[in-house]
Structure formats: C-alpha cells, structure tokens
Design a protein around this nucleic acid. Structure first.
Lengths: 218, 218
DNA sequence: AAGTAGATTTACCCGTCGGTAGGTTTCCTG
DNA sequence: CAGGAAACCTACCGACGGGTAAATCTACTT
C-alpha cells in the first residue's frame, strides 16, 4: 500500500485555522486515494505534516473528519456553480451554464469529487446525509428553472407537478454522469454537458410535444 | 451495527458445491448490506451457516471471496440480458430489449447490483478488473448494434469509427443510471430504459441528422 | 471393521489502526 | 518577566477482525 508523500515542510506553531485547512486538504487527498476505510489517520496526519492528536483535537473522530471534508467540498462546489450562472438568462441557458460549471468543477477537482460523491455514496450512514442536503439544494434550484420553462411553454398545471421529480432525476443524472466521468476522463466536459442537456431538455420538452422514441411493439 | 440474521438451518455434511453456493449467497448479502470493508468474515460465515475456516478452504481470502461474488453476479446478469434479446429484431429494438432486460435484472436483484457495481467500483484494484471484463463484453455487443444501424442509415465510413466510443458511453450511461436507480427505486425500470433510449438513440441518430440542442451563445 | 478422504469445528494468533493520556514547547498578555 | 493558554508531540492502549493450526467427525470404500 503506497502512501502519499510530499508532506509539507514542518512549520511550527501555526494558528488553528491554517492547521485545519492543511488537515482537510490532506484528508481529501488520502480519502480519495485510498477510500474511507483503507485511509488511516496516521497517513493523513503524516501528509498534513501534523501529529495525530491534533486532528482529534481540531476535527474530531475519523467520521467527523470525513464529514467535514464532504461539507467543505460540497460548499465549494455549490459556490462554483452559482458563480457560473447568469440569473437573467433564459431557463435553458441557465441550466446549460450550471451544467458547464458543474462539470468544469468536477473536472478540475477529481479528487474532491471522488471523496465527495463516490466515497460518500458507497459508505452509508451519516456521510450520505451531507450529500442529501446538497442534492436537495441543487434540486430546488433546477426545479425552479423547469417550472419557469414549463409554464412559459404552456404546459398544463397538472403536469407541472411532475417537475420536481424530473429535477431530481436531472440532478441525479448529472451526479451519475460526473461519477462515470471519473472512469472516462478523455471525454470533454462540454460534451457531457451537451449530452445531459439533450437527455433532459429534449426529454422534458418532448414530453410536452410528444416527440420521443418509443418501441414499435413491446 | 445490526447483523444480518436468518441463517439457514444447519444441515451437516453437505457437498462442496452446495456450501460454496451458500457462502456466495451470504457473502453477496453481507457485502451489499455493509460494504466491502465493514463486512466481516465472521458475519458472512454466520449468515452462511458455516464456520469461518470453511470459507478460507473453499473460496480463499476475503478479496478472493469478493471477486468470486462479482464474477458470479456478472455472469448471471449477462445471461439475463442475452436471454431477453431477440437476435432477429431491428438494431434499435434489440437495444431496447437489452436495456429492458438489464434494468429488469437490476431491479430484481438490487443486492447483486450493489455488490456487483457500486461496491466493486468504489473499491479499486483487483475488484474492478472483473467489472472491466464484463463491461468489455457488453460494449462489443452494443457496438455491433450501433454499426449495423449506422451503416444501414448511411452514415459515412469515417464516422463509424466513433461508434465504439459511443458504445462505451452508452454502456457507462446504463451502469450509472442503474446505480442512480438504487437511490430512486420509485422510478419504473421501463422509464429508465426509455430515457436512455432517447438519450443515446436520438443523440446517435441526430448526430447524423444534426438535430440536437446547442447553446445559443458561449 | 478398518482405513481414508473430505467436511467441519473450536480456539487461537497477531497485525493494524482508531483513539487517548499526559507531558512539552512556544507565544501572547499584563 | 511571570504565567497561562494554546499549539504540539511521543508513546501507548485496546479492540476489532483477517487468517490459521490442529484436531474431530462422518461417510464412503475395500
């Protein structure tokens, strides 16, 4: 089991904030490299250039540390997305911008995404809670876009109720695509965004217009 | 950590084949319930109704056992899919049938899928190898369909080269969708298959006809 | 009945790793 | 220059869990 090296040069007596950041940085790297269980607190402390008890003093148990990683990276991601969307654009363009920002973030921060999504998903329990929270915020946002677009295009009020389900599906599809992307880095992020746009936007629009692929027989 | 109960009634002196099957059954359940690392050999042996050394005698180490689980479930799945496709149908219908069979299998065997895909993916190393093999076979199959369809529709020979990439993308999309499905069981499998069909088939067909969503600006 | 091979168990070893006790150093404040 | 608070470390513990040694038991063969 090869340990991550490149520990930071030991500087002494740094303020708590800085140490916490170093520890979180190290934790994200080690967790994403080895997975939650296989990652050892010893290695994290080593990579962070700090002794183990510091981690427990500042960030708590291993679970706490992992949760803290997720929280931080999730926040970073949501900010990156929000920063990439222009609020005055048309709904489809906003969705497009959001997707591009999303895939751009994931592409630049594969480590973060690994720890944030793939690891947190495969471990159950308290970890996924952090994800659920973030996903919830994302879904609300997307749902607002869908509703704006649907009512504008004249979708009947009844069908509008389904938007939240579709928003959830879209967000889930985005997550899954990003996850899939980890194993297929050669595909450009723009392409992913386009695919997703076609899937959900056509699937959504065509759901009104009725132009979709259907099996001839069953 | 609640342990799985419902151990099979101890029958003594069974032939090796039978015991191996019991052990694999138990292993799939426990691995999918707790995840690879958290699952303990003790619990697996308990659920299987067999003592621990038997597992080591028959299936080898924990890693070996896990790999054996993946291999078995992967084979089962491929057989299920192959059984659902009629070789004389049109390409799009074959794809449709395959997708339906695939989602049908995953839907009926969530446990298997969990251990087969989600767990194996999040753990790295030797485990994913088994998956890679299966995925390879699936991609070949899909690629054949795409090529048949593309040349039939008059796609130029040049573009045909991209089919293998698209086949890989399609298979990956299917995997990811199934993975996403684990967290959204309320969506019917047929719907998933339709979505995927629309994504890839329209994306594929429209890639020839040029009718896709594209951003106005950017 | 004896012998043999495979099925099956109990009881144990020991490495790894999360977590902590308790002390030491540095810096800031009055 | 006290003196205290906060940063920081070495060294250790204890449990969990993978893996095994060495017997024992049953069933079939000759």
């Amino acid at each position: 089991m090869d340990a991550i090296d490149a520990r930071q040069g030991r500087v002494k007596r740094l303020p708590r904030e800085v140490r916490e950041r170093q520890i979180l940085d190290a934790a994200v790297r080690v967790f994403s490299a080895h997975g939650y269980h296989t990652a050892s607190m010893d290695e994290i402390s080593d990579v962070a250039g700090v002794s183990k008890p510091m981690i427990y003093a500042y960030l708590g148990s291993k679970e706490d540390l992992f949760a803290a990683c997720i929280r931080r990276e999730a926040t970073l991601m949501m900010e990156a997305i929000a920063g990439g969307v222009q609020g005055d654009s048309a709904p489809d363009m906003q969705l497009w911008q959001g997707l591009r920002a999303f895939f751009s973030f994931v592409g630049a921060q594969r480590d973060s995404w690994r720890v944030l999504h793939r690891q947190a998903t495969s471990q159950g329990g308290p970890f996924s809670d952090e994800l659920v929270a973030m996903r919830g915020r994302a879904i609300e946002l997307v749902d607002a876009l869908l509703v704006r677009s649907a009512t504008k295009q004249g979708m009947d009020e009844q069908a509008t109720k389904g938007t939240s389900a579709m928003a959830a599906a879209l967000v889930g599809a985005g997550e899954s695509m990003a996850d899939w992307w980890v194993d297929h880095p050669e595909v450009p992020g723009r392409t992913l965004a386009t695919w997703l746009m076609n899937l959900v936007w056509m699937g959504f629009g065509d759901l009104v217009e009725g132009k979709v692929w259907t099996p001839n027989e069953d």
